[in-house]
Design a protein around this nucleic acid. Structure first.
Lengths: 137, 137
DNA sequence: GTTAATTTGCAACTCCGTTGCATTTATTAT
DNA sequence: ATAATAAATGCAACGGAGTTGCAAATTAAC
């Protein structure tokens, strides 16, 4: 499984350090998006700045993407393999108002928007809020 | 015109203090959304906490709504008259990557999203990024 | 006018994100 | 293999946004 992790890092041209392997492993195990503060908590021995820079590196190289759910700190989730984060590849995100977890809805692409004349579109971000299947019971 | 402002405040059951009139006046003059830090800058004599609480009061009473454009501080814009901020009344927002201004696209409703079974939807937020008509020339 | 309730101003504080810099670790050249 | 170079990490500190407690001032109610 460490091979799988290193493979993932290599495929995005990120040098596989111990720290990076740890962070990626943790993110692969989680179903929901994770924030820097959460990461700090879960890898308590690790330094905040290092984790911060790790996330930034991952994001720059499109291994992960950031999600602004308007609810506390910025969250991060894994990109799909080979995703280049082009507008047509983007999906919507779901933020549960009960458990506060944020999920990628990879099956639901971001909506197509026709802007008024003279506007130039580069990206669309959609966050849906509500109660997730786990919390709705 | 002060009458118009007080009328707007009254219609949302907000007591018209001098501070609130000033903030509302400023927001009515602006075409783009405004953040707390910007408000502080433009009403330099006013206190941050007061402006903060003014915005919170306005928001609670649906005179304004907040916009999380993922680009710096939270921004606020006027609601349409009689808007109750129900999901079906919501519009999308546009954030210009050049001038950094954020606009309400009141004519473009938020997209309809069908969530997977078991999910309960309460709101949809869509932010479009790109270059606005002013900056595109 | 006096009392009660609301609003404002000031100070302080927390949290998140970010940076500078020294130290350590990895890579490359000799 | 060793020295020189580059990259990553750890520690400390900082700044901005958002928020709160509390006292003073303003407004509303009696």
């Amino acid at each position: 499984m460490n091979e799988q992790i290193d493979e993932k890092l290599n495929s995005r041209e990120i040098k596989p350090t111990a720290m990076r392997e740890l962070v990626l492993k943790l993110m692969m195990e989680k179903l929901s998006a994770i924030s820097l503060p959460e990461l700090e908590e879960q890898l308590s021995y690790a330094d905040k700045a290092t984790l911060y820079r790790t996330l930034k590196t991952f994001e720059k190289n499109k291994l992960i993407h950031s999600i602004n759910d308007g609810n506390g700190p910025l969250k991060y989730a894994l990109c799909m393999d080979d995703c280049e984060c082009e507008p047509e590849e983007l999906h919507i995100h779901f933020s549960c108002t009960v458990c506060n977890k944020t999920y990628c809805l990879n099956e639901i692409p971001v909506p197509k928007i026709s802007l008024p004349k003279g506007f130039n579109l580069t990206s669309v971000e959609t966050v849906v809020k509500g109660v997730c299947a786990n919390c709705i019971s």
